[in-house]
Amino acid sequence: MKSENKTTLVAEFLLLGLSEDPDLQPVLFGLFLSIYLLTVLGNLLIILAITSDSHLHTPMYFFLCNLSLADICSTSTLVPKMLLNIQTESKAITYAGCLAQAYFFLVFICMDNLLLTVMAYDRYVAICHPLHYTVIMNPCLCVQLVLICLLISTVDALLHSLMLLRLSFCKHLEIPHFFCDLAQILKMACSDTFINNIMVYLTTFLLGIGPVSGIIFSYTRIVSSILRIPSTGGKYKAFSTCGSHLSVVSLFYGTAIGVYLSSAVTDSPRKAIVASVMYALVTPMLNPFIYRLRNKDMKGALRKLTMGMSFFFMSMSTALPVSS
């Protein structure tokens, strides 16, 4: 009986990336480096603005701070390895590195999903139960909700990663993607992936349909409450507190649906990769801009932070001794 090529014998996978054209590699390197820097700097500014401004020490901005942190981590899981492969003209990623990348991406993308749901609940309580808002959304509950999101995300990613360990791979290990996507890894397995696929469908349903249903329910009640407000100014003020979150939710789930449809409808891996770039990289980059452009409090906090940093650097430059 022939022995199977078990996963323990797999040395590395090959990430084919977006294009194999050598002339496009410098362009792709510059593009994704720019996306990565904008994502990290934009979300880092959001975190610094929230932590430095006492007026933003509220549940909504606490969740936003954690969302920005999750966006930085999810992008950092993918882009540095991609940039390294382009720079070194190598497509290789070790078996352990591939599983680690898939694991951490699942953790942080699931965190985004659950945090958006928690933020929708926060807006529901703020608009539908304003008199009890501070009592319901107390600091202890906010911390517990974030920890629950992290626990669920970690358990989900851990289950998928552990189930990958039981698979064997006995054909060419070229992943037609720019990162170790769980679906692409399962396609390369030569052993039975029925249980893995069942787990993927189950978790997609529970962690996809569940949060989306919660968001839809929250906004249905929010719209109903806003319509009962007599003044137009009151309606606008109430809805403006949800505008940024609603924009981020639309962008996140819109690109996620695009990834699913592109992989289900078309057989072209290139179209699926482009959709994944929008979902995994562009969305985390745009989130800080959405909150900055649509939120007056965030604009003010970022302005104060920028002025404070400018004053700090100016004072440091004047304090430096001038050489003769």
Score class of each variant (00 low, 15 high):
164 L>R: 03
304 K>V: 11
89 E>L: 09
307 M>A: 11
143 V>W: 01
145 L>C: 05
164 L>C: 13
82 M>P: 00
43 N>I: 03
88 T>R: 09
311 F>P: 00
279 Y>W: 15
285 M>C: 14
65 C>F: 07
161 S>F: 01
20 E>D: 14
234 G>S: 05
324 S>R: 07
202 L>S: 14
186 L>H: 04
157 A>T: 01
43 N>H: 04
258 G>F: 04
89 E>I: 03
53 D>Q: 08
106 L>W: 01
222 I>Q: 04
9 L>N: 15
259 V>M: 11
185 I>F: 03
184 Q>E: 15
201 Y>F: 06
15 L>V: 05
315 S>Y: 00
145 L>E: 00
35 I>H: 01
69 L>T: 07
126 A>Q: 10
246 L>M: 13
151 L>S: 10
185 I>P: 00
299 K>F: 06
83 L>I: 07
36 Y>K: 02
202 L>C: 12
102 A>V: 02
24 L>T: 09
292 R>E: 10
107 V>D: 05
293 L>Q: 08
292 R>D: 12
74 S>D: 09
99 L>M: 13
7 T>G: 13
115 L>W: 06
35 I>Y: 03
173 L>Q: 14
141 L>H: 01
272 A>Y: 04
131 L>A: 06
159 L>F: 12
296 K>L: 14
95 Y>K: 08
20 E>N: 13
185 I>E: 01
17 G>M: 08
200 V>F: 06
231 S>E: 06
252 F>Q: 09
270 R>I: 14
12 E>S: 15
146 V>E: 02
175 I>L: 15
45 L>I: 11
201 Y>S: 10
310 S>A: 12
201 Y>E: 07
23 D>F: 13
305 L>W: 07
1 M>P: 03
189 A>P: 01
261 L>S: 11
85 N>W: 03
91 K>D: 09
228 R>N: 05
163 M>P: 04
293 L>I: 10
265 V>K: 09
56 L>H: 07
73 C>K: 15
241 T>M: 05
259 V>D: 11
39 T>Y: 03
300 G>H: 10
54 S>L: 13
27 V>A: 11
162 L>H: 12
272 A>R: 04
144 Q>W: 05
87 Q>H: 10
183 A>M: 06
116 L>P: 02
67 L>Y: 13
131 L>I: 00
197 N>Y: 13
159 L>E: 04
54 S>D: 14
